[in-house]
């Protein structure tokens, strides 16, 4: 995927709220990648708030990475945010002071295209709705050929959703954008929300261990997720902090953390309100059947199969998180 002699370059597209912030820290502190840009999309919070949160987080890491504001709403639909999960400011409303610098003047879509030209082998990770990436692909479809790897935190492969029974939040917010991205030919690795459940949740012990690191970053990572922790308990009855975006970032940084994966055709549901945003995975490879041709043939011709991670190295993910916060 990359050569040890050339540094890996990464662009992060994010709707920066609490778990995104932790993912940003992991990338900005990582010795294995150089983050060339952060692009902001509306999702968890408004695009302006997302940009403020990303700038604040970058400053905490001592990073001057450029931050570019992107789409303020989905391609076709009204924006649905998740302040109930992340707090009004997306960081659990602790009154963090604004960063000292502001976002760049270039729009996120332009920044994505520019980065794809100036950094051969660019990797992209998306932590929010796929509006920016879809817009970039519509403007220049050849973008798909210039990205060496696209990790998407989103979707509910062969499992229940978190925002509706059929869909995960990031895909559900802008299903048309997701459909465009998944059909684009990008080499996609999909990190579904279910990987951040069960043992992957930071439990009381994990949280204590992180706090014991005693660094400002560790303190921030836990504290900015306080609203998410209580929302998670309300939703699932389980205690802890579920961190989908940092898990996606962990797999981006250390691909070996994906213990089980397989590649399948995937399409995104955009027609029905019941199944809006469902990530439909051809896990049993039935789409080659002639009877499925009218719905699947053109997708299967244009799109690459999506690599879906089914199992995460939980201990490895938590160890990487702790290293990032030291």
């Amino acid at each position: 995927m990359h050569h040890d002699t050339t540094p890996r370059t990464l662009l992060i597209d994010t709707d920066t709220a609490s778990d995104d912030a932790v993912a940003l820290i992991m990338a900005l502190r990582s010795p294995t990648v150089q983050v060339v840009a952060i692009t902001i999309v509306a999702g968890n919070v408004s695009v302006e708030q997302g940009a403020r949160n990303a700038l604040f987080t970058a400053e905490l890491c001592g990073s001057m990475v450029p931050v570019h504001i992107g789409a303020s709403k989905p391609l076709l639909r009204e924006l649905e945010t998740a302040e109930w999960f992340h707090g009004l400011d997306g960081l659990s409303d602790h009154g963090y002071a604004p960063a000292h610098r502001t976002a760049e003047t270039t729009h996120a879509v332009g920044a994505i295209l520019a980065a794809s030209h100036s950094h051969a082998g660019l990797e992209v990770i998306t932590l929010g709705p796929l509006t920016n990436l879809a817009m970039a692909l519509l403007r220049d479809p050849s973008l798909a050929t210039r990205i060496s790897r696209c990790v998407i935190m989103g979707g509910n492969p062969c499992c229940e959703g978190n925002v509706t029974p059929a869909a995960e939040f990031n895909i559900w917010v802008d299903p048309e954008a997701a459909r465009i991205v998944f059909a684009s030919g990008l080499p996609i690795q999909m990190i579904g929300w279910q990987l951040s459940r069960d043992e992957a949740v930071l439990d009381a012990k994990d949280i204590a261990r992180v706090l014991a690191l005693g660094t400002p970053l560790a303190e921030f990572a836990i504290r900015c997720n306080s609203t998410a922790a209580s929302a998670f308990e309300t939703q699932t009855g389980e205690q802890g902090i579920s961190l989908p975006d940092p898990i996606a970032m962990a797999v981006l940084l250390e691909p070996a953390l994906s213990l089980e994966a397989s590649s399948h055709h995937v399409q995104i549901e955009v027609v029905s309100s019941l199944t809006r945003g469902m990530t439909v995975v051809d896990r049993l490879n039935v789409t080659s059947d002639q009877r499925n041709a009218s719905v699947w043939a053109s997708n299967n011709q244009a799109a690459s199969k999506v690599e879906i991670c089914w199992k995460l190295d939980v201990a490895g993910w938590k160890a990487l998180l702790e290293r990032s916060l030291q």
Binding site: C159, V280, D282, L284, T287
Partner: peptide, 10 residues
């Protein structure tokens, strides 16, 4: 529910 469909993926 969590199994992929057996006639279409869904």
């Amino acid at each position: 529910m969590s199994e992929a469909g057996n006639i279409t993926p869904a």
